[in-house]
Design a protein around this nucleic acid. Structure first.
Lengths: 201, 201
DNA sequence: GTCTATAGCCAGATAGAC
DNA sequence: GTCTATCTGGCTATAGAC
């Protein structure tokens, strides 16, 4: 059954694991080959170079994360529904892929041009729609006056940061792995509450 | 005048810049030497190895950041004062050192043992004091019922995340460098407001 | 303390047999 | 497509002159 998985797929899966842990410069082609249990030169056969393999991994990671972020901006739900839904879905997803946001932020900081390439090529409704939604909700007296940009940053911060700073938080909170997992589990609903409490009138 | 600066200092300053940008594995000793305008072998003369030089930089960075975080836990101010003060001070400081949190989180994720080494060696009042403060404030009816851990994570998230995710946020917000700088400037007070709104009764 | 030169290693990439 | 062997360059680190 596992024999059915092509070498190309095995490489990509292994490369994801290694690159997400060690980053572009920390990863070794030999390590990826070992992880995939294939010969090192096959990496070059399928992906030509380390850079190209890395880009495949990075784009795939970014394209996993960015639609999730985009639901906040472009879904048609009410603000509270958005916040509740996003918080729950995002945290659930991240518990399963804890290295993803860290990897993306890291490489984006090293190579900020990637963003324009990856986001602006998509022509999404983006900020404009969200800005209007917030403006309307404020005018209709549904939420207090807050800038859409600030609210957007706050939502992302509260949801993503715990996964980027796990070791630091564990240190300051003085909790075990299990204890931290429990805290994250609670955040699936706590974070939405926290935000809604803050913007309600 | 600049001649007064010792080679050792020049190396450390240069190493900070390079390591904070590229991380341990991405940095090159030659690059650090060039940045410091000094001969490469002097790096080894003063710091023996890349690893040792890196550790000097990392510890210094961590010891800059961690006392700031600790003020939330251990200062004697009221909760609202803490939140307002920390938000303002931290953001002001970070605008001047935007690479610092990213660097620390990155290397901490690669090497989680660092935390225990660096935090627990300090024997700080830590979480305990903060937990009590929150418990008291809840009982006295000053704030709504919220777990100290969650509040702590929220405060850090809202303050630190924007500096860790700058390229990503710029991309989604579709703003220029200047536009993003303005948003951060506003956060010096907006973030505290956001938190206090959420926890007040 | 500061320099030049170089040892020694390791990683990415390719050649070529099967 | 998959393997072994090897080239090539770059990087850390040291030896040794001044």
């Amino acid at each position: 059954m596992n024999k059915e998985i092509s070498a190309e797929e095995k490489i990509l899966t292994a490369a994801r694991r290694i690159f997400e842990n060690k980053g572009m410069s920390g990863a070794r082609m030999q390590e990826i080959a070992d992880e995939a249990k294939i010969n090192k030169s096959l990496l070059h056969y399928y992906y030509r170079s380390k850079q190209k393999l890395f880009e495949a991994v990075f784009k795939s990671a970014f394209n996993t994360l960015s639609p999730q972020i985009n639901t906040i901006l472009s879904s048609d739900e009410s603000i509270c529904e958005k916040i509740t839904g996003f918080t729950f879905n995002y945290t659930t997803f991240m518990v399963k892929h804890p290295y993803l946001p860290n990897f993306i932020l890291q490489e984006l900081n090293r190579n900020p041009e990637f963003v324009t390439e990856l986001i602006s090529s998509k022509n999404l409704p983006g900020m404009k729609k969200f800005r209007n939604q917030i403006k309307d909700a404020v005018e209709e007296g549904k939420i207090r006056n807050i800038a859409a940009e600030q609210l957007f940053i706050n939502i992302l911060s509260l949801n993503i940061f715990p996964f980027v700073s796990t070791p630091l938080l564990k240190g300051f909170l003085e909790v075990s792995d299990k204890g931290f997992k429990d805290i994250l589990e609670k955040r699936k609903t706590e974070v939405a509450e926290f935000i809604i409490q803050s913007i309600k009138l």
